[in-house]
Amino acid sequence: MDMDTIRIETLDGGRIRAGAGGELAALLRDAVHGGASVGFLAPLGTGEAAAWWRGLAAEAEEGVRTVWAAYDAAGTLLGVVTLVRAGAPNQRHRGDIAKLLVHSSARGRGLGRRLLAAAEAGAAAAGLTLLVLDTETGSPAEGLYRSAGWTRAGTIPGYAADPSGEPRPTTYYYKALG
């Protein structure tokens, strides 16, 4: 995979719906079946993954969530990241980074960092000044977030179950945008 040929695009609701049962569901299933704690238990079926993406398409159309997707030169989906805007009137300055997923075949090459940077830039362009995220404590993602300038806020024991159903600690991070 040549990182110079990777393109990152924003997906609208229609594109999310179009890929929900195919490439997007496959990416989510790859993450869950690879052990990523992203809100689902294994085994994750295609139907359940597709239904989640279809619901997310509605959020994109409502302006609640933005989805960025990374594709290689052949048009193969390699990863996604989403930004969820806070809805409360006193929180409209912030957003949550959610579902940073990189296909197992594309990991370790800087794609997660590029997706995270795209989401940060998109958030700043939208006027957001603070981002938060959570990740399984001890996961490889923690190194990415720390090296990208995110600050550890704290850890909650047993906060979310991993794909096997085992409760794991979750660490929260934040980043102030310039």
Score class of each variant (00 low, 15 high):
Pro140Ser: 03
Gln91Leu: 13
Val38Gln: 08
Ala49Lys: 02
Val84Trp: 00
Ala161Gly: 09
Trp68Thr: 01
Val32Ile: 07
Gly79Arg: 11
Ala141Val: 00
Ala98Arg: 13
Leu78Met: 15
Gly165His: 12
Leu41Glu: 08
Val81Thr: 13
Thr155Lys: 11
Arg85Tyr: 00
Trp53Val: 08
Trp68Met: 01
Glu9Val: 12
Met3Lys: 10
Leu100Phe: 04
Val38Gly: 03
Ala119Glu: 04
Glu61Ile: 02
Ala57Cys: 08
Tyr174Met: 12
Ala125Asp: 15
Tyr145Phe: 14
Leu77Trp: 11
Val84Leu: 12
Leu11Ile: 10
Thr170Leu: 05
Trp53Glu: 02
Gly47Cys: 05
Lys99Glu: 12
Leu116Gly: 09
Ala50His: 00
Met1Ala: 12
Ala106Lys: 10
Met1Lys: 03
Arg168Ile: 07
Leu100Asn: 03
Gly13Arg: 03
Asp12Leu: 04
Gly143Asn: 09
Thr135Arg: 03
Leu27Phe: 06
Arg152Thr: 15
Ala86Glu: 14
Leu133Tyr: 10
Ala126Phe: 10
Asp96Trp: 10
Val102Met: 06
Gly122Leu: 06
Leu44Gly: 08
Ser37Thr: 15
Leu56Met: 14
Ile97Asp: 03
Ala70Phe: 05
Val132Arg: 12
Trp52Leu: 01
Gly108Lys: 01
Tyr174Arg: 15
Glu9Phe: 00
Ala88Cys: 01
Val102Phe: 00
Ala119Lys: 08
Val64Pro: 00
Tyr71Thr: 02
Leu116Ser: 07
Leu128Tyr: 10
Gly35Phe: 05
Ala141Tyr: 04
Leu133Met: 09
Leu83Gln: 04
Leu111Val: 03
Pro163Trp: 05
Met3Ala: 14
Thr155Cys: 09
Ala58Asn: 11
Ala74Val: 04
Thr5Leu: 10
Gly112Ile: 02
Asp30Ala: 08
Arg17Gly: 11
Gly108Leu: 05
Leu56Gly: 13
Ser164Tyr: 02
Thr129Tyr: 01
Glu166Lys: 15
Gly154Cys: 08
Ala74Lys: 11
Met3Pro: 13
Val84Phe: 03
Gly34Ile: 08
Pro157Asn: 07
Asp2Tyr: 01
Arg29Ile: 14
Leu78Asn: 07
Ala73Asp: 12
Glu136Phe: 04
Thr135Met: 05
Arg54Asp: 13
Ala106Pro: 10
Leu133Lys: 07
Ala70Asn: 08
Thr135Gly: 03
Gln91Arg: 13
Glu59Asn: 14
Thr155Asn: 08
Ile97Phe: 02
His33Tyr: 02
Gly79Thr: 07
Asp30Ser: 03
Trp68Ser: 03
Lys99Phe: 08
